[in-house]
Simulated assay, not measured.
Amino acid sequence: MKKQSKFLYKTVEDKTIVWFENSNEYLVLENNTADILKRLSKGIPVKEIAEALSKKLAVPLDRTFDFIIDLEKKIYVPKSNKEPEIVNDYRDIEKPKSYEFIKFYKVNNVVFKVSYLSEKELSHVHPKFAHLVIDNTTNFDYEFDVFINNKFIFLIVDKKLIGAWSSKNIHYFQGKFSMQFIQKIHHKEEDEWMGVFHASAVSNEKKSILFLGDSGNGKSTSLALLQAKGFTCLADDFVPMDVEKREVYSFPASISIKKSSLETLLPIYPELETTAEYNFTRLNKIVRYLKPNNTNYFNHLPCNDLVFIKYEKDAEIACEKISKIEAFQQLIPDSWISPKLENAQVFLDWFSSLNCYRLTYSKNEEMIATVSKIFSDEL
């Protein structure tokens, strides 16, 4: 049986989080189970481990033996959440000679030239970054090319092929585009990032808080409400965090506002009335985009708090600390965590130090007051 090459272990509360290097997968295990895994990884024979476990738990040897064999099979053939690999190097694909749309985006003093073959390619990227558009210029720092060929969408950055994705995996393309974007903005290569979280990040200019939760729970709406009260939008939907500083970095995409939130936000942001509307049938949502109030897209701040936020009609305000294990199991499925061993260790150390909350609300002012208390460490 092929063994995993390396593991990382982190005891959090009464469980052990285990990371597998070969698959970049995380599992939450009982401490006894994690101890068995540690012994297996050291090459200790199954029989010897089973005998020790049988004595410790006072159960028959055949039961502990079968348990360890079953565990070994499950552990060493973990599910993989890896991005689908490209099965063709596409050297026979020619870059288009002309593009229908060419956009220039300025992020602080960094200028990107992005060429889109047609309106279809444009729709996958441009709406989130339209607020960054500047007039055409011959002076730019980085050049991106986006085109569809043979049902695959291609991304070329500074004349280098980054990858190609099928129409079923557009979200992987969008993630890679965003990753290339932040690498250029913040001058950090991919292995210098600890991870990227599907969350909303708000700051008080001293530190940041991450809002998490299922789609439709109100992450972006809460972010927009807080922005109107003087807090800063660091990032929405795509929240990058670096390894060196363990800080949340600014990402310049707009805040995505669902149609169901317009009634709440239009009195605060009247510009949403005439903002273009986008229907994402794959995600079953209709959104408009709100410009973030961030004036420094090079900004980065520490994050000590995760808040699983949920708007619920007529609910009484409730904010309580939740177990880190519960928070971890909700955080991981929608996150990209670096596959590099050293970075995974930084992630586990950072996560174990966090405060994790669940915030349910129906009244906006109460939500804002509660978030203010979290920022000031009053909860």
Rank of each mutant, 00 (worst) to 15 (best):
F308S: 07
I268F: 13
R288M: 01
V239I: 06
E320P: 00
A253Y: 01
K324M: 09
V287K: 14
T232M: 13
G230P: 15
E320A: 11
G230V: 02
V239K: 11
F251I: 00
I309L: 13
K229L: 07
L272R: 04
T232Q: 12
N284Q: 14
A235I: 01
L226G: 09
E244R: 13
S256G: 11
F298H: 14
K285M: 14
L265K: 08
A235G: 00
N294V: 00
C303R: 00
S260V: 03
N304C: 05
A228M: 06
D236Q: 03
R288L: 03
F251R: 04
Y278N: 02
L301W: 05
F298M: 12
K229A: 08
Y269W: 04
Y269C: 03
V243G: 00
Y269S: 04
Y278R: 06
V248F: 10
S250D: 02
M241L: 08
K285A: 13
Y269F: 11
F298D: 15
N304Y: 13
Y289L: 14
S250I: 00
A228N: 15
P240G: 08
Y278D: 06
E263L: 07
T274Y: 12
E316Q: 12
Y289D: 09
L301A: 02
I322M: 04
K245C: 10
D305R: 10
E273V: 06
R288W: 02
H300R: 10
A315L: 10
E271C: 03
F238W: 07
N304M: 05
F238M: 02
S254P: 00
V239Q: 11
